[in-house]
């Protein structure tokens, strides 16, 4: 069971997302995260799916995705050099001595505090998923009020370009 990042260029039509999500659920494939937004060409959307499975399952996933009529291109980013990022917003309790501690932790992880109230901070943190996991692990669980993560997005390094 290996972790794979699948990038998809898909026609930006209504229902495109449900075709992809439906394919994964109908055939029993995993989705660990999924992100989607239009590209610089508004007629196309780019979708990034974090999934896992054996080589055979991954072969089927890419073949089945390619079969969807709206899908223009599919690539398994994790097959070669790539960079990946995920964004997290995390709301924490920040009162008394925790206030200073939270500020310090955010600095160590190169997060930014983007909202401040008398008792809370919202910290923005970007990085590979593992870094976000470590940040959560480093905080006192009792102080975490809310987290929201975008899911992984990724791009091939150098000349590896996914374009029509």
């Amino acid at each position: 069971m290996q972790r794979h990042i699948i990038s998809i260029l898909i026609e930006n039509e209504s229902g495109a997302l449900s075709r992809v999500a439906g394919l994964f659920s109908a055939r029993g494939y995993n989705i660990e995260s999924l992100t989607v937004a239009p590209t610089e060409d508004p007629s196309l959307s780019r979708m990034t799916i974090l999934t896992s499975g054996s080589d055979e399952v991954l072969e089927q996933i890419t073949k089945q995705l390619n079969k969807l009529v709206d899908v223009v291109k599919v690539v398994d980013l994790s097959e070669a050099a790539h960079v990946e990022r995920e964004l997290m917003l995390i709301k924490v309790r920040a009162t008394g001595k925790d206030r200073e501690e939270m500020k310090r932790m955010a600095d160590i992880f190169r997060g930014r505090i983007i909202d401040v109230t008398e008792s809370t901070f919202v910290i923005e943190l970007t990085g590979a998923s593992a870094k976000l996991d470590s940040f959560i692990a480093a905080l006192d669980a009792g102080l975490i009020l809310e987290t929201v993560r975008t899911g992984v997005c990724g791009i091939g390094r150098g000349d590896r370009i996914l374009k029509v």
């Binding site: 229902g15 449900s18 075709r19 439906g22 009529v69």
Partner: peptide
């Protein structure tokens, strides 16, 4: 219709 038939069509349109 598009939702109900999606898993059993090659493609569908509204």
């Amino acid at each position: 219709t598009v939702g109900i038939t999606r898993p059993c069509v090659k493609h569908n349109f509204l």
